[in-house]
Design a protein around this nucleic acid. Structure first.
Length: 193
DNA sequence: ACATCGATCTACT
DNA sequence: GTAGATCGATGTA
């Protein structure tokens, strides 16, 4: 899969593109990790921040695909999302967990914890390990020519994709939508089992 | 202006 | 397994 393939998928359909992010490499400075857990959010779904309202916070979600949308939650945590769908149609993919590959010492320094399994096993943890904040909103994650935060498309799709209900969504119709995608061969690195 | 609510994490039992 | 922390964005007035 090329960068172009992944970008095209992001523009086309957020639910189809989300599992294609599994196995992608998130790069920043010396740090590299393999994405193992993601969730899709679409504008017709109440759990989506861009549901029925366009606000300053979510403005970037209405732009082109492949751009970073970072928001602050619970007064404590930053969350990294990849914008999907064409301009005017808001959608995003939350990066929830990843397996550390390189630059573990930088991640440990940023996180203040040592255990490898605890470095990136949750959306807030991942953002903290990578030093991701609201200032990273707007970064073009698919542009590998820029030196900062970016994504490398996986060589080939993940063989064993496990789907399920998204985490932290209230019970109801939209809770049951299977828009959480996990790399079934990397279960040990996800946020919850 | 002010009250409410989280796409969570950590520490502690 | 679960309570508590913590604060920006949003909704209502």
């Amino acid at each position: 899969m090329t960068q172009g393939d992944l970008l095209a998928a992001l523009r086309d359909d957020v639910v189809a593109a989300a599992p294609m992010l599994l196995g992608a490499i998130l790069v920043r400075g010396p740090m590299r990790c393999k994405i193992v857990e993601v969730e899709a959010y679409r504008s017709d779904d109440p759990a989506c921040h861009a549901y029925q309202r366009r606000t300053p916070r979510t403005e970037v979600m209405y732009g082109p695909p492949g751009i970073a949308y970072v928001y602050f939650n619970y007064g404590v945590h930053w969350m990294l999302n990849v914008v999907a769908h064409p301009p005017g149609d808001a959608a995003a993919i939350l990066i929830r967990a990843a397996q550390p590959l390189e630059g573990l010492e930088s991640m440990r320094a940023n996180r203040g914890v040592f255990k490898e399994r605890d470095l990136l096993s949750g959306p807030g943890k991942l953002a903290k390990a990578y030093g991701i904040t609201g200032e990273d909103t707007g970064t073009n994650l698919m542009d590998i020519s820029q030196d900062g935060l970016h994504l490398l498309a996986p060589g080939s799709p993940i063989a064993n994709v496990v789907t399920g209900a998204r985490i932290g969504i209230a019970e109801g119709k939209w809770h049951d939508v299977p828009w959480r995608f996990v790399d079934g061969d990397a279960i040990g690195w996800v946020s919850r089992r």
